[in-house]
Design a protein around this nucleic acid. Structure first.
Lengths: 221, 221
DNA sequence: TCTCTTTTTACGGAAAACCGTAAGGAATAG
DNA sequence: CTATTCCTTACGGTTTTCCGTAAAAAGAGA
């Protein structure tokens, strides 16, 4: 079993529960931090001491407080950890349930497990740790379907960024030029309009405002 | 000190931490539930047994799962508890930080304490319990300013319903006729446009879509 | 009452969204 | 290679938003 685990989680109550849970698994060293910055620091030190952590368990969202931080989110922490050691095992423990975000964690950041904070997440956490130790990935059963592409209501990365730009108040015109600059295709006004129209149709939205309200409610963006 | 405490909290990890924390306070009886329905049931039973709980600690938001529930939120649970016993001590433990919602808890539902889930909430929780036991109310220091009225975002019910109609995809034209029928004033196209423009200014939104995205994020609608 | 201020309403032109049609291009099957 | 299909782009007309100006109505204070 893992001997050295690092936990990054801002809420103290969840930290307490995590540490207690890991203790029941007979992990030798358990360290926890409430800030991503501290987590990265501890990880760096463990490398310097040639005794790196086997596994990092991290939340995604960290509440901002009085303290100035360099790393503000779990996503950024994961990037920093992967830059130091592409092979470190990473287990995400979060309430996030948006298909797109979770899929990106596995596909782009190569995380090894995702446990959804919920009514029965602690037992899942134990299972996840064993799975990861044995070299396989883990995702909470209730979210498993999110990784299967079909289930995704036929919306892809392009649609998501389209919706995000819309929600930021960009006009179709702006988007056309932005997409052209970023070499994102399609990038014509007409195509973008068509895509938005398709999304409105898909979500039965009366207009763009309604569309954004709906996808926000569904947690798609 | 309190001898009998009931906890209503859906996440198992937080439940674990709460129970562990309460144990350090030497509470005789600690019961916890992951559903509001169960919490109410336990509370009713404790009354039937003429040994009611002294204090109920509850979350506000409960994730919906496969189980059908009658009481879906902490707010509803509090109403049900108050109906049974207007004097039961209630402590809310939640991530909610919207001024309006927290103010209503104290003003309308007469809760006795509010602890904000955060990096240092467990020690606040202990303090809150002592405060409440001694007959005074408690609110997390970082949220205390929310109870002082001057924190008035200058948006009223009219603005809220305006935003809600907008989010439903209604056009300004539609709203003008709807408001006329409902005898809501002002109801001219021009006035409604002006109000929306004022809200966009207030929230620094680029257009209506952006505005709805912002107020959705802020939880105003 | 009258005056001053604020709110509501009206209007008009520019910009953007909305929506249908159609042409151009790439991918694919035969 | 050709035919078909799907995706992308172009275009134009209608509707709605956007934003300024200004008049009418309502409210406040003396």
């Amino acid at each position: 079993m893992f001997t050295k685990i690092l936990v990054a989680e801002d809420f103290d109550s969840i930290n307490i529960a995590l540490v207690q849970t890991l203790q029941t698994l007979d992990i030798d060293t358990i360290e926890y931090t409430k800030y991503c910055d501290d987590a990265l620091l501890k990880y760096k030190k463990s490398i310097a001491d040639t005794n790196p952590f086997d596994l990092v368990i991290t939340d995604l969202s960290f509440v901002q407080d009085y303290r100035e931080v360099a790393i503000a989110s779990g996503n950024q922490l994961i990037d920093a950890l992967r830059a130091l050691n592409p092979n470190v095992k990473i287990l995400v423990y979060s309430v996030e349930n948006r298909a797109h975000n979770i899929r990106l964690l596995f596909e782009d950041k190569n995380i090894n497990g995702y446990v959804h904070k919920s009514r029965n997440s602690i037992s899942q956490l134990k299972t996840a740790i064993t799975h990861i130790y044995n070299g396989s990935n883990y995702i909470s059963p209730e979210l498993e379907h999110l990784l299967h592409k079909q289930n995704n209501l036929e919306i892809d990365r392009y649609d998501i960024s389209l919706l995000q730009y819309l929600a930021q108040g960009k006009s179709i015109d702006d988007m056309a030029t932005t997409f052209l600059q970023l070499n994102i295709k399609p990038n014509s006004k007409s195509s973008i309009e068509k895509r938005v129209a398709r999304l409105k149709d898909l979500f039965k939205a009366h207009n763009n405002i309604h569309l954004i309200a709906i996808v926000k409610d569904l947690g798609i963006i």
